[in-house]
Amino acid sequence: MHRLEETWLTVSAGILIIFMFIVGYQTFAMGMGPPSNKETIDPQKVEETAPFDHPGVFKVGENKYEVVMTMEAFSFNPDDITVPKGAEVEFVLTTKDVVHGFQVAGTNINAMVTPGHIQRISQTFDEPGEYLILCNEYCGVAHQLMSTTITVN
């Protein structure tokens, strides 16, 4: 191998290692890893299983909220939710039927919600406004209508 090729591979592999170091540090030292919750649930008994037997928005601390939400083709429950400005919101999600994707446009909230699994993802909403929540995994004929909002005021 030519010396210059070795130089190139060292530099470029070094760049990849730096990328991995940055995302690895954020993941393991700062708790910023991608949504990876491991709780499970019977996908055919979602409505009878806590906490999804009572979906809703719950205040759990000083400006901290938990949103227990079920997804199904083609709706969210609860929908059109409201939280105060600066609220730290944890979404607890599951699906009653097929795979859905939970995305809030313009934020880092993006998580797959697969049947049998409970997914969790958190976000602090500092900017007031009406955020668009949408399903970003194809789930059937009216997939494009599956959306709701979260209002921050």
Binding site: P35, S36, K38, M112, T114, H117
Partner: peptide, 17 residues
């Protein structure tokens, strides 16, 4: 599957590598 539930962060990171 990086944002799938049911897979631990360490397994995901191994796969990032």
């Amino acid at each position: 599957q990086i944002i799938d539930p049911g897979i631990s962060l360490s397994i995901k990171f191994l796969h990032v590598f």
